[in-house]
Nucleic acid binder design. Sequence first.
DNA 1: TGTGATCTAGGACCTTTGTCCTACATGTTG
DNA 2: CAACATGTAGGACAAAGGTCCTAGATCACA
Lengths: 228, 228
Amino acid sequence: MRKLRPQKRDNAASARGQEAVAAILTGARDVLVEEGYPRLTMRNVADRAGITVGNLSYYYANKEDLLHDLLEAVIQGYVEDFDRIATNFERSPEGRLEDMIRFVVGDLSTKETTGFFPALWALAIHDDFAASEMSHVYDIERDAFARVIAEMRPDLSKRDRDILALFISATIEGHTMFIGYGREKASAAEAIGNVAAYSLLSLVRNVDAATIRGLKLAAKVGGKRAAS
Amino acid sequence: MRKLRPQKRDNAASARGQEAVAAILTGARDVLVEEGYPRLTMRNVADRAGITVGNLSYYYANKEDLLHDLLEAVIQGYVEDFDRIATNFERSPEGRLEDMIRFVVGDLSTKETTGFFPALWALAIHDDFAASEMSHVYDIERDAFARVIAEMRPDLSKRDRDILALFISATIEGHTMFIGYGREKASAAEAIGNVAAYSLLSLVRNVDAATIRGLKLAAKVGGKRAAS
DNA sequence: TGTGATCTAGGACCTTTGTCCTACATGTTG
DNA sequence: CAACATGTAGGACAAAGGTCCTAGATCACA
């Protein structure tokens, strides 16, 4: 499970206070992941953190502040993890792209990711702060994909590379509800990882600008079985 | 916007009662879509339906019953729509697959779908009934994809065809949070539709069983630019 | 027409939840 | 040690929300 690095809070002046904030954020994340957003109440968070509501309100005067810090802290963990993977320059662009795809697909199966992201997506539709945090993490992810794509396909325009990066990111995320932790198709996770790696790598290698712009009908384009 | 066909309720004995139930479900859907699940309260639903809480409780004695009927009714609309598209036998399998892909991608941009499905996904993680309704609609969708895939690729095993159907469905759904109604990348919806059609059709045409089972490394597989 | 079935409004109720306050405990620093 | 900053517990409070009850309106039909 990722570490949560709390931002410095006004009311957490001592080391003890910092620990309390960390316990609060960890508790809040656990409630969100394990029980869902509707159960993310000040009292549930306080219980998980092993403190009282009164004490919780010393650190977080209102729920909105708590939610903001929680989203920031959790998102930050994902950003750091992904940055690390994306900057492994030992492999070829193709190899790195495959690593990234398999890393994200693998991550979907964790309890934290399966529990956190669908909640974030739902939240982001009606909450601007959640939407901006969501943008943050996916901007990072797409940037990383776009950089690898640029190496593989310098002939494509930046716009087209960005479309491909968006497609790859969205494609992978979409599997969360199906192959995520405890989900119905969790047993298909490995096969899905293989298909995703194959399909998305093939896409980046083979797509051309005219296709992205809709100048070719997909059903008309001839296909050959991939060379073995 | 899809019509909501309420199941017959015990307390809706007359035509007037049926209309009231329809108004309630429509109101409930609108609240869920426009304000999100946390605001789906009995009072908000009653207001949208133009009735009082007291009257609402005549039809739905508790919130759980209301939520169940709501999910069933909304899901049923999607099932019917999708069934209609999937059984258009005028076109070739490839053409039908492309139609289905473009239909689902296009549907993501509607306010209802963008608002409803992320809420459903989040709900399904902690609510068994929501999970079973979610299974229902996606089972139908995957079955339809799997049938077309079977026509295109009779050489693949049922398991492999099911994996491809799952991959296609999940891939498309994953774009909801990005290119959905009012979302940040909504302007990329058309290009994404093109890429999805191209990428997923190519996948079904070209993938082989060994790739799905992970016996080939994606980054090692050679690729050629698609024939124009 | 009137009588029972159906529907509706309004409000009461109890619980949950966010927020706030105060007194007390713990720690830190001169 | 004294004084002050920091942290903690417990409970009070109002608002919101789910549920329930009752009296009255509307409707269908004998």
